[in-house]
Amino acid sequence: MSSVLETGDRTLSVLLGDLLPPDVGIAAMNTDQLVAFAAQHARTSQLEALQKIITGECTDASFAALDAPAREAVLARVRRKHLKAFADFFLLALQCYCLDPGVRQAFGDIPGAPFPAGRDVADGNLELLEIVYERGPIFRVPPPYPASETRLTFEDPPPCS
């Protein structure tokens, strides 16, 4: 099989459009980005494996040529019969997708790395602790050691800053 990097096969882009469709402020998953990401992490074979499985499941027409309900039926079959290959593929796609600064921003995960500005976290209401404090100590005080057992101390420990 020729590499997904080389063919004009639209299986991957249509598949990604189905699995990670556009949403408010986010375009559909970018195929080139995923192909490059997979190559960078030496996982191109996972893209190719699923592409091959899907192609094998589409007997009458290419996956890209099917209408949405037909594609959904193919994917349901693929997930049932080739769960691991599907999961490997989708987890790889998620890694690429969720690390994209634009996607992170759309989910409110800002500022992104390298975090020049830091992030604000609410202090929280410390008055809620009053009631915990008022209930009093909850730790146990151990009994004294027998007088016969001397405790070790180091006299005159050196000063420290």
Binding site: C98, L99, A113, P114, F115
Partner: peptide
Amino acid sequence: PSTRPDGEL
């Protein structure tokens, strides 16, 4: 890693 966009990986 936190200095890189792909740090979570």
